[in-house]
Design a protein around this nucleic acid. Structure first.
Length: 288
DNA sequence: ACGGCGT
């Protein structure tokens, strides 16, 4: 197995064991913003860094504050370009306070986001509004929205306080996969989906705790979300007997993959109806 | 290409 590939993955990073769940970059004018959704034993957080040729500034957003950031950026995106009626905002998260202020100089309008905490010096990022339609803010908002959505896909091994709720998300994924091309109310009639939550030991950093398996004929297919220093992927492993082979699907291709499978489900409907239940076994046979 | 903030 790949074992502890996490050791060499991101090159460490001074933070310690923090795992990168999601990384995005956004360029606005000449600034580069890095969004890193990370996780450590204390929980998840979003690190937003502003990078210019000479300057680097970072704020740390607690995980439960991402949606608030999204709301606030929406507020400034939707505000009128006349800045008279745009207000400063404060957002308290845990022990931190974030200040949102709109300013303007000869370079244009900008949104200043400052993080004030008890222990650290204040840190600030400044987001240009952009040329028109507040496109810089809107792009920033869109990244936040993507992160907010994507973060719901991942089960945090360290945030299992409400496991049933987390598992419900897995149900959404499984049901949607089938139901988008089938009107059957019971998508698991032919293939039963079993959830396995095997919390990996510290050595398998890439496994984020999302794992499912289906069985067809004598084969089992394991679906695992993972990530490495090149991003996020879905690993689909086919296991038959003692043989195992995998494909690694970058999440950027997941939707196309879904559509492609749906296409073949559609054109194979006749055959599927003919063999329903014959070649497909459920993984959890009733014990009788 | 910028550079805003505040010490």
């Amino acid at each position: 197995m790949e074992g502890n590939s996490g050791g060499g993955g991101g090159g460490g990073g001074g933070g310690g064991n923090d795992v990168e769940l999601l990384c995005k970059t956004l360029q606005v004018e000449h600034k580069l913003f890095y969004f890193d959704l990370k996780e450590n034993p204390r929980g998840r957080y979003l690190k937003i860094s502003e990078k210019t040729s000479a300057t680097r500034s970072t704020i740390i957003v607690p995980f439960n504050g991402i949606s608030w950031f999204l709301d606030l950026f929406n507020y400034y995106v939707n505000s009128d370009d006349d800045q008279q009626d745009v207000f400063s905002k404060e957002l308290q998260l845990d022990t931190k306070v974030f200040y949102f202020d709109v300013g303007e100089n000869r370079r244009g309008r900008f949104l200043k986001v400052s993080e004030a905490s008890v222990s650290r010096n204040r840190s600030t990022i400044i987001v240009p509004a952009g040329s028109a339609q507040d496109e810089g803010w809107a792009a920033f908002r869109n990244i936040l929205a993507e992160i907010n959505e994507a973060s719901r896909l991942f089960i945090s091994p360290n945030q299992t306080s409400e496991p049933s709720e987390r598992l419900g998300l897995s149900d959404d994924v499984g049901a949607g996969f089938i139901s988008s091309h089938s009107s059957q109310s019971g998508p698991t009639a032919d293939l039963s989906v079993e959830r396995t939550i095997d919390l990996p030991a510290a050595d398998e950093v890439s496994n984020l705790g999302v794992s499912k398996v289906i069985r067809a004929d004598q084969k089992r297919f394991f679906f695992d979300l993972g990530s490495n220093n090149r991003g996020h992927f879905l690993r689909i492993s086919e296991v038959a007997g003692s043989d195992r082979s995998s494909i690694i699907l970058p999440l950027s291709g997941l939707k196309q993959f879904h559509e492609m499978v749906g296409h073949f489900v559609e054109i194979s409907k006749d055959r599927l109806e003919g063999i329903t239940g014959a070649n497909v076994r459920t993984i959890d046979s009733p014990q009788r």
